[in-house]
């Protein structure tokens, strides 16, 4: 009983009217309490890069046990589909009890642009994650992993980094290959890449999710090793800014 009460008070901490809360908690403490007032969030994603597009973005508020990805562990097949081909459907399907905002930019998020989504979060969905593939890369993605959503109203802003899913060799060849296990980069949306590259590497030695080492590119748009332009398609971290407004 005491534990239940404690839990109830803890869970409802985020609500401002503490007096009302406490009485509600007391009233309900004899039954299992799962319902907590929703949080209304506005989440803005800014592409900070100068030459990289983001494919459809998946924003999710979820519980403490759910992870879209974990550094140092192998990517799930769902993450791989997102990172190699920009397809967030499998990741989204995996998130059965999460609150989600899918594809707020209605397609690609161009370099140095922003998009926003509203999200109502319920229950135990106290953690925020954001992912989107980066183009042109083989399996690079922007990643926010389980950021604890503050209960206090306010605006919170921070930057995030680029990850490599570890599922595909970074050959930097634009082949249209976006399907699972198909080598190559699906596309360069900026239409500023080259062709005829022989491939930067054919192996992916680190199969765990890790910080992306960046594109290499070259200065030969008709050949060389890479189809990418080394003055356009590189980046330095951070690659995105997340601004969360808790209402």
């Amino acid at each position: 009983m005491n534990m239940l009460l404690l839990q109830a008070v803890k869970k409802t901490k985020k609500i401002k009217n503490k007096a009302l809360l406490l009485s509600t908690a007391l009233l309900l403490s004899t039954t299992a309490i799962t319902q907590v007032q929703a949080q209304e969030l506005e989440i803005k994603v800014t592409n900070l890069t100068q030459g990289i597009h983001f494919t459809p973005i998946l924003i999710a508020a979820h519980d403490g046990d759910t992870k879209l990805f974990k550094s140092g562990e192998m990517a799930s097949m769902a993450l791989q589909m997102m990172a190699e081909g920009g397809d967030i459907s499998a990741l989204s399907a995996m998130l059965t009890s999460a609150d989600k905002a899918e594809n707020p930019a209605m397609g690609l998020l161009a370099p140095a642009t922003s998009t926003s989504a509203m999200l109502s979060t319920m229950d135990a969905n106290m953690y925020l994650s954001v992912v989107a593939m980066m183009l042109p890369t083989n399996d690079g993605f922007i990643g926010l992993n389980s950021w604890k959503i503050p209960s206090e109203a306010g605006t919170y802003s921070f930057t995030i980094n680029a990850y490599d899913a570890g599922t595909e060799a970074n050959d930097e060849m634009i082949t249209g290959g976006g399907a699972l296990g198909v080598a190559g980069i699906p596309a360069a949306p900026g239409m500023n890449a080259g062709t005829g590259g022989t491939g930067v590497t054919m192996t992916e030695g680190n199969s765990h999710v890790h910080i992306h080492r960046g594109n290499l590119g070259d200065d030969d748009l008709m050949g060389g090793k890479s189809d990418l332009d080394n003055t356009v398609h590189r980046w330095l971290n951070p690659v995105a800014r997340i601004t969360v407004t808790v209402n």
Binding site: T49, G51, D219, N230, T231, V232, H233, R234, W235, P238
Partner: peptide, 9 residues
Amino acid sequence: KVAMHSGVV
């Protein structure tokens, strides 16, 4: 447009 710098090559 102002963006983050990608570093020099």
